[in-house]
Design a protein around this nucleic acid. Structure first.
Lengths: 332, 332
DNA sequence: TTGAAAGCGGTACCAA
DNA sequence: TTGGTACCGCTTTCAA
């Protein structure tokens, strides 16, 4: 059995109250007593039991984080931001991976609550109705992080997808491209995918360019970016492709590589996200840099603020993005 | 204030002992009482406080995981394995990132202990002496996971790097290559890097081939793989490169790409690890697949076994690896 | 400045 | 099958 506050009290010949006071610096303790207690603590290597402490103070210093999949580098980046800022305020994170399964999300939300987390962050592509309901049952700060879905009800942290897509399209136009295609997943009406395509269309329309070269993908992965193109690409003479995500852009890049269409010589391809591989692959991908780490950081900061009853700022925070110009795009 | 076991007891007209029994199914309870209690629990949405429970049972169902950096996909993969298997046994993970800072590791080891984790997994390139010492202070199951360092003292899970390198070299030889270079970081004597280079040398010596084409890197990252090559590569007519890690291999690949040396036409390049990008870049990288997910899974399983007092198997577990033949290598 | 004692929300033993 | 109660390790009144 580990040493407890009682052992310290006994060995230093004081009450546990006094020991508690010295370890917490909560109330004045005479110097000699303090010294003695500290000495004993050092000697027997006493470490307060945080569980016991939590039980009485109600502060677990735990934040629950439910993610879809750590294998997605952007998720890992968000978690890094969450963790690092959390640590600055002595918070630890309890991690759960749902792999996109809403039952799992539901289960973890309950689990984390039983473990007395003080706040929760959910990173998930879509916000399921039941999950939404379950979250509202609990009365702890919550932030919803998603690259795809929006939520009015819960606080979110993201970038302005519409403007980002708009700006990126303008950039391609400035490079001299006129036949610019859009590649993306367009199933869910309420998703950020629509903000992106609208940004694209707006930029195209402003310049009176044809915004009808839409390549619909069947999903959000590399494979689907690859197969959305097929042979329709070369037929209509598109010279640039705005992809709704880096994965899709990489799929497109691979498609071109395999079909002897050179990037960026024959076609410019740009992505969205700036996930890790974006700058690792060759050619390096031109893309919209979403500040994943910062998104995580801001999310947990928001939670911690709420926890300390500070007036919380706006509910939906938009962070700045950047247009990362690299090698997969060039002047026509 | 959330509802407690007392509320349930009061509302169902029984003692808290009885309520405890029904929620834990620990002792027989008459059907009617049970039904009634369950009803009340459902009605007021009672959820046991795990913190209170932990305090008395000493079971926190928490495993502490200290990692270097989640941004490394192999780390994320290990954590996934840890988390997924942990969840099967109701364990949750408390995550800490050290970013390679040993002070941070030290701090987190203590922190996790105060939070009453039942076991700990450390993922770190090197096992610092002080960290080693600190770990031994605590009496909980511990596993050390590293791709670079070895530890006799603590349980580990890895692959047989010597054989893997040996086998990969043999594979390159079987492709007709004779001038095979080795690219790797060779500073730390006690590292797995030496097992790899020895595997390489053994394979080369067995075929009486020259094993002196060693390119020393100054680190383990892409950049260092890139710069280790410089112009020495083409001079000596090496036709294949065995790299000690995928990152280094990618650096090599990039070096070749930038210097107009075609892979695999002019040179075959193979890596070690099979991290995520290995199969995403073009050409897809031939590499030794280290089962990161499984390594994490086996590590936590080992901890859970120890926790349940099962006889633990061997201390240092070696998992099978695979030679992933892809596009960055070909017949000479 | 100190100690005693009442909890925090549970579990588990003992007696009924 | 049940209830009473001690206790887990700590914080925090309240009195001294």
């Amino acid at each position: 059995m580990a040493v407890t506050i009682k052992d310290v009290a006994k060995l230093s010949g004081v009450s546990i109250s006094t020991v508690s006071r010295v370890i917490n610096d909560s109330k004045p303790v005479s110097p000699e007593v303090k010294r003695k207690v500290l000495e004993v603590i050092e000697e027997i290597g006493y470490k307060p039991n945080e569980i016991a402490r939590t039980l009485v103070t109600k502060k677990s210093y735990l934040i629950g984080v439910i993610v879809t999949d750590l294998a997605d580098s952007y998720v890992a980046d968000m978690v890094r931001g969450i963790e690092e800022i959390g640590k600055m305020y002595n918070y630890d994170i309890l991690l759960c991976s749902s792999y996109g399964d809403k039952e799992a999300e539901l289960k973890y939300i309950q689990l984390l609550n039983r473990k007395q987390v003080e706040g929760m962050i959910l990173i998930s592509s879509t916000l399921d109705d039941e999950v939404d309901k379950k979250v509202s049952e609990y009365d702890i700060p919550f932030v919803y992080l998603s690259r795809y879905s929006k939520s009015e009800k819960y606080p979110t942290v993201s970038i302005d997808y519409h403007f980002a897509a708009y700006e990126m399209t303008k950039y391609l136009i400035s490079l001299g491209h006129e036949k610019i295609g859009y590649v993306g997943y367009l199933e869910d009406e309420n998703s950020t995918q629509y903000e992106k395509i609208n940004g694209y269309k707006r930029a195209m329309n402003e310049m009176e360019l044809d915004s009808s070269h839409i390549f619909k993908t069947k999903g959000l992965n590399i494979r689907e970016g690859y197969s959305a193109l097929n042979n329709s690409l070369t037929e209509n003479g598109v010279t640039a492709l705005l992809c709704s995500s880096d994965k899709i852009a990489i799929g497109a890049l691979n498609y071109c590589y395999d079909n002897n269409i050179k990037t960026p010589e024959d076609i410019s391809i740009v992505g969205f996200g700036d996930i890790q591989i974006a700058s690792l692959i060759r050619p390096k991908l031109t893309t919209v840099k979403e500040p994943f780490y910062d998104i995580g950081a801001v999310a947990i900061r928001k939670i911690i603020k709420e926890l300390s009853k500070e007036p919380s700022e706006e509910k939906h925070i938009k962070l700045p993005y950047q247009i990362q110009k690299r090698d997969s795009s060039r002047k026509l």
